[in-house]
Structures are given as structure tokens and as C-alpha cells.
Amino acid sequence: MKPIFWLKLGVFTASLVPLAQLVVDFYADQLGANPIEAITHSTGDWTLIFLLLSLTATPLRRLSGWQWPMKLRRMLGLYAFFYACLHFTTYVWLDQFFDWRSILADIPERPFITAGFLSFVLLIPLAATSTTGMIRRLGKRWVRLHRLVYASAIGGVLHYLWLVKADLAQPLLYAAILGMLLGFRLLRHWKGAAGARRPQGIANPRAPARPAPPAARASAGVRPGRDGRTGVRE
């Protein structure tokens, strides 16, 4: 087996640990006085952590030149969706017990729930189009569609920020990390745009770091790997 197989297997297994921990704690009565709140907070935290991890792949690849972060990106993104589903289910089932009237009142009225709900909804098309087949079929549009993850992550951090009563330390930490990850992309985008406007023939010392134009990027990105694995780059 190739090392990447073992890396993926390791990350896949490790990503299930938070869920396993919840199940173990639940049966050992270790979730405290308010288990439903504990489950809600844990699944919400892990959704944000996996979202941020998946957004780390591209900057890490750019800065280090390593390819392996990109090979983990889809799995990390899908785990973010997985924990978001658990989080949403916890809210609808355990917390509200399918009281749709109060759920439908909550979503538009409570800003933190509005933000969280939109974040979750935005992840659905991303998860649905995460297969290699869909990447190939959607081509350039896949890249554009998957930029929704930025909006989803911002909404997720706002969801947490607006929920907290007084101690903003934890949500602000998430906000700072997200700010860095998105800032990295913005900076590259501006640099790329500035580079693209330069007349041809003038040497650009930063050229190797500049992203390829969207068209080239997309066609390169949608190339499926020989063994069926995707070679998505961006």
C-alpha cells in the first residue's frame, strides 16, 4: 500500500474519535447535567474544526509544496458535513424534539440560528457534488460552486459568536483562524490579479507562486487520477 493510503486511513479513523467519545461518555453518564447541550456543543465544535482543517489544505500545499494536504481535503470537508448533520439532527431531534413550529420560528428570528442553518444548507450541495464523477462533470463550475464553503465557514463562526453570552474567547479564536485562511486566499487573489494585468514579456519574480488563470486551473484540476482518484488541485 502507498503511504497516502495509510495517511487517509489514519485521518479517517481519527476523525471518528470525537463521535466515539460522545457515545462512550453518553453511556458512561459522563456528559454532565445537560447531555443534550454537551452533544450540541461538541458536534458544533467539530463541524467548525473540520471546516477550518479542510480550508487549511490549499494554503498548506501552497506554502510547503506538499501534495498530501490536497488528498485529504475532500475527506475533511465531508467530515465537516458529517458533524454538521449530527449537530443539526441534535437540534431538531434531541433539543426541539421535532417541534417544527418552534424550529421554523427559531430559524428566521434568532440570528445565531439563521446563520447556523444557512451554513448547514450551503454545505449540502458541496457534499452532494464531492464525488469524482461530479467533479469531472461540473468542470469549471465545480470550482466556483465550492467557493460556497467560504460563506459556510463565515456563517458557522458567526453562529458561534452570536450564541455566546459573554466569553467570546473561543469563537474569536475560530474567527481569527478563519480570517487567516481566507486572508491568505484574498492576498493571492489580489496578487494574481495584479500579475495578470502586467504586460507580457516583463519578468515577474513571483510568477511561480502565482495561481494559473481560472481556465487552466479548472482543466488541470478536473483531471482524474489514473487509479480513479481525483487530481483536483485548487
Binding site: 447535567a33 445537560n34 443534550i36 434531541l94 424534539f97 418552534s102 420560528a105 427559531d106 428570528e109 434568532r110 440570528p111 445565531f112 452570536w162 450564541l163
Partner: peptide
């Protein structure tokens, strides 16, 4: 930021 119509009594599910 949240409704006050209902509450969860600690130790109860619904």
C-alpha cells in the same frame, strides 16, 4: 437571541 417559551428541566429529555 433565544426563545423563552420552553425550558429543559435538568434530568428530563423533553
Amino acid at each position: 437571541r433565544w426563545s423563552q417559551k420552553r425550558e429543559r428541566r435538568i434530568g428530563e429529555f423533553r
